[in-house]
Design a protein around this nucleic acid. Structure first.
Lengths: 229, 229
DNA sequence: CTTGTTATATCCTAAATGGTAATAACTATT
DNA sequence: AATAGTTATTACCATTTAGGATATAACAAG
């Protein structure tokens, strides 16, 4: 290998797809870009400093730009096409961050908005995402429409064999709540009994013994994630 | 966002896990690192120049450092832990590259070696990889043992729903050859009839009409990938 | 023409899947 | 206190899928 400082270096950033499910819909948190800069709405992100790891950078963006912490996040993919950022050569490492809806709603102030995220099924290749708020579509900056399309596709693929759905739920939850999260991500209805069976057979969750409160009809049992055993 | 040139930038590299199946074993192409540098064997890689896209960099490494082209490759993950390269801050974007065994064998000259790659199953979490050649283990540079562990895990996961297995085979192949590739990657035997059925039911391949030549017993039918329809 | 070996097809069992219908449990109302 | 209304949970069935054992077919070599 050659000396590390011989050539001009690209900039490296992390971009965060911070997602949740609210009212049966998949949402993502975007920031409105300032005037005079690149137009539209974008995922929050920040540059990776030479003394920070990727994870540290993610946590810094979450804290400083979004004002939340303690959320589950995982790396998805890295985008480095030339010209994807008109201001210069930027390579973006995209992370998926998941948290419950109430946390995100409090974070959606000022230039931050929580918007609906729509991605077609279209022969399991996905395609770019569309975002809208109160009926009107918003335009996405950079290549973020393509990225968010990929993000949703990966989310759908991981749903069955990972435990990401629980990252979108509070500590205790009903089986119906889990199903609603799955339906929002997959954008299609699921039938209850097989869903319950598969979920319980996976052995990831256990009943707490408590029941859902406040409902008008028969209360559902509350479950929680098993601790690792 | 801030000005792109305010802070010192990390270096960005691509590292290639160039893999094949030979004699029923999963192999990876490594380069012996020069004396006086970081010790051990490593994946071939190169720095991402500011005027090159990630894909261009991959193709450059394949051509200049390995001497092959026209191989299937796809991005896997990005590694950016502090201290993973003792020479400086390097973020590595890891690509998986797959090609047929004969291509790789001709490339394995000089400092390049084609070695066995072993990763335990261990409760589907993977763990670090081990590599050996002619019975003796080789030591891996940097964090490449951990990376190669992740690589094999991803390879195993994608085997059933993607067409990566065919990237390891010549243009026409027998069903048995496909099964051998799967068995080498999964490191366990598979039963023939269900494997054949699932493979054919997926509709990705079609018989060419020709038969395998040179064998001592009943020749198998040759298949090829269907063109996209 | 026989034998050895592998390729391919047939069949069976068990498990997972997708769904419908019945029952249970609770709230709210009368 | 009884009843209606709604949802949670269970029971059950039909279909498909996976895994595997066995039989048959096809070719080469002697």
């Amino acid at each position: 290998m050659t000396d590390l400082s011989t050539y001009a270096k690209p900039s490296v950033a992390v971009d965060l797809a911070i997602m949740t499910v609210l009212d049966g819909r998949l949402k993502v948190l975007l920031v409105r870009r300032p005037e005079g800069d690149v137009a539209g709405y974008a995922m929050p992100g920040g540059f990776v400093r030479i003394e920070d790891s990727l994870e540290t950078t993610v946590e810094r963006v979450l804290a400083e730009k979004v004002g939340i912490d303690d959320v589950h996040f995982e790396q998805l993919a890295t985008y480095g096409t030339l010209g994807r950022d008109p201001r210069g050569r930027v390579i973006s490492i995209v992370y998926l961050a998941l948290c419950s809806a109430d946390t995100l709603q409090t974070a959606a102030t000022g230039g931050r908005v929580l918007v609906n995220l729509l991605v077609d099924w279209s022969d399991q290749i996905g395609g770019p995402a569309r975002v809208n708020r109160e009926g009107s579509d918003l335009s996405l900056s950079f290549d973020h429409a393509d990225i968010l399309g990929d993000v949703v596709q990966r989310l759908r693929g991981k749903l069955d064999y990972s435990s990401i759905a629980f990252a979108l739920l509070p500590d205790t939850f009903t089986l119906r709540a889990v199903q609603e999260v799955h339906e929002a991500i997959l954008a299609r209805p699921l039938t209850k009994p097989p869903f319950r069976r598969k979920l319980l057979d996976r052995g990831l969750i256990q009943p707490t013994g408590a029941l859902e409160a406040g409902g008008a009809f028969r209360p559902a049992a509350l479950y929680e994630l098993k601790s690792k055993d």
